[in-house]
Amino acid sequence: MDTQRNESEDFMLELGAITKSFGKNTILHQVSLRVRKGEVCSIIGPSGAGKSTLLRCINLLEQPDSGNMSLNGNFYDVSFPLRQDELLSLRRTCGMVFQSFNLFPHMTVLQNVVFPQRHVLRRNESEAREVALKLLDRVGLKNKASSHPTQLSGGQQQRVAIARALALEPKLMLFDEPTSALDPELAHEVLDVMRELADSGMTMVVVTHEMNFARTVGDHLVVMADGHKIEEGIPEAIMDHPQQSRTRQFLSAVNH
C-alpha cells in the first residue's frame, strides 16, 4: 500500500488506455504512458502515427473517447469532458509548445509573455513584466522584448513561445515537433533552450524527429505507429537494438 503510493508519487503523468477517434477512424488505440517527475520522454514515429493527437489529449485540446489520466497527483477520468474549472486547472499544469509557434502577432514579444500571466495567474503588471523579462533573458531574447513576433526568426519565435509557456510555471511541458518548421541552424538554438530546461529538472514530453536530442537529452523513448505505442524504453537501447520491425523501418528512414 505504502510502496504503491510512493511509486505513483514518482510520476508526473500517467495516461491510462487513451482511445481517440475522429469519425470512424480510431487514431489512438488504448495508449498508456507514464512519465516520471523530472523525466524527458520523447515520442517518435512516422507521420500520421497519432503522436500529436496523443500530446493534445494530455491537455485536452482533443477530447479522448475514453481513458484516464493522472497529472501531478490529480486523477481525471477523461472519458467525458471535464468541468470548466477542472479543465483550466489541468491546462495550468501543462505548458505547450507548437510546431507553428502560435505567438500572438498583434502583441509585442513582452506582451506575449505578460498577457497570459495577467489573465491566467492574475499577476499584476509589474510582477508579470519582471517574470517575463527574466524568462526572455533565459531564452536569450531580452533585447527583443519590444519587437513584434513577425520581426523575429522562427527560432527566436519558438524561444519566445517557450518563455510564454514557462511564465505560467507549468509542472509539465509538452512539445509538438518544436523544431520541424525550422532550418537546422535555427533548430539548434531552440534545442539548446530545451536542453537547458531539461537540465533544470522540468518534466517534458517531446514529440520530435531530432534523434540526437531524443538520445542525448531524453530519458525515455516511446515509439508510435498507427495509433499504437509499439515500443518504449531507454533511448540508446531502442535506437541501437530496436525490437519491432516497424521501429527498425522508421529509424532507418530517419537516419538516411
Binding site: 483550466l88 491546462r91 507548437f98 507553428s100 502560435n102
Partner: peptide
C-alpha cells in the same frame, strides 16, 4: 485567424471570452 491562435490560447488556459475579445477579435 489561424486555428493555432485558438489552440495556443486554450493551451495557456486563457478563458474563452478573454481569448475571443483580446486575441482572436483584434486580429
Amino acid at each position: 485567424v489561424p486555428r493555432g491562435q485558438y489552440e495556443a490560447s486554450q493551451a495557456l488556459g486563457i478563458s474563452r471570452p478573454i481569448a475571443f475579445f483580446r486575441i482572436i477579435a483584434p486580429q
